[in-house]
Simulated scan of single mutants.
Amino acid sequence: MIPILFAMPGNEAFTLHLDRAISCEVGQMEMRRFPDGETYVRLQSQVHGRDVIFVCTLDHPDEKAMALYLAARTARELGARRVGLIAPYLAYMRQDARFKEGEGITSAHFAAFLSDFLDWLVTVDPHLHRHHKLNEIYSIPTKVVHAAAAIGDWIAEHVENPVIIGPDAESEQWASRVAKAVRCPYVVLEKTRKGDHEVEVSALDAAHWKGGTPVLVDDITSTAQTMIAAVAKLKEAGLPAPVCISVHPVFAGSAYQDLLDAGVAKVVSCNTITHPTNSVDVAEAIAIAAVELMSILPINT
Rank of each mutant, 00 (worst) to 15 (best):
A72K: 05
P240R: 13
S254F: 03
M294D: 03
P249F: 10
E103V: 08
L114E: 13
R177V: 03
H129Y: 09
I273H: 07
R193H: 08
Y40K: 03
G238I: 11
K191V: 03
D119S: 09
C24D: 01
L5P: 15
V178Y: 04
H127A: 08
V250K: 06
M29W: 06
D281L: 04
P35S: 05
Y186H: 13
E101M: 13
P3A: 11
D281G: 06
V182P: 02
V243Y: 03
D205L: 11
L18P: 05
A265Y: 06
K133R: 10
N278T: 09
H48P: 00
G84W: 10
I164T: 13
R130C: 09
I288G: 07
D116V: 04
A147T: 05
A265R: 15
I164W: 07
L58R: 08
L70E: 09
P141V: 00
L78W: 08
P214N: 11
V187H: 14
Q257W: 00
P88S: 13
S107W: 03
K266L: 02
V122N: 00
S171C: 10
N161Q: 13
H208E: 15
Y69A: 10
R82P: 05
E77N: 13
Y186W: 15
G84H: 12
P185A: 10
V217G: 03
F110L: 02
L234T: 12
V47T: 00
R177S: 08
A97S: 15
T74Q: 12
A230R: 03
M31T: 15
V182Y: 06
L70Q: 15
D168P: 12
M31K: 12
K133Y: 04
D36N: 15
P61S: 12
P141H: 01
G27D: 02
A156E: 11
G49M: 00
I151G: 00
I286T: 00
L114N: 13
V188R: 11
T106G: 02
K180R: 12
L16G: 02
V178W: 03
D116S: 14
V163R: 10
V250E: 06
F6C: 04
S171W: 06
Y40W: 05
D168Q: 09
A112H: 12
M8Q: 13
C270H: 07
C270A: 15
G104H: 07
K235Y: 14
L239A: 09
L114M: 14
V217Y: 04
I86A: 10
R20P: 02
Q173L: 01
T223L: 11
E77K: 13
S269F: 05
I53R: 07
G238L: 02
I220G: 11
A237S: 15
I164L: 13
R82I: 01
Q257N: 07
I105V: 15
A150Y: 00
V250W: 02
N300F: 06
P240C: 11
Y40S: 04
V47I: 01
H208L: 14
L121C: 08
H127R: 03
T192H: 14
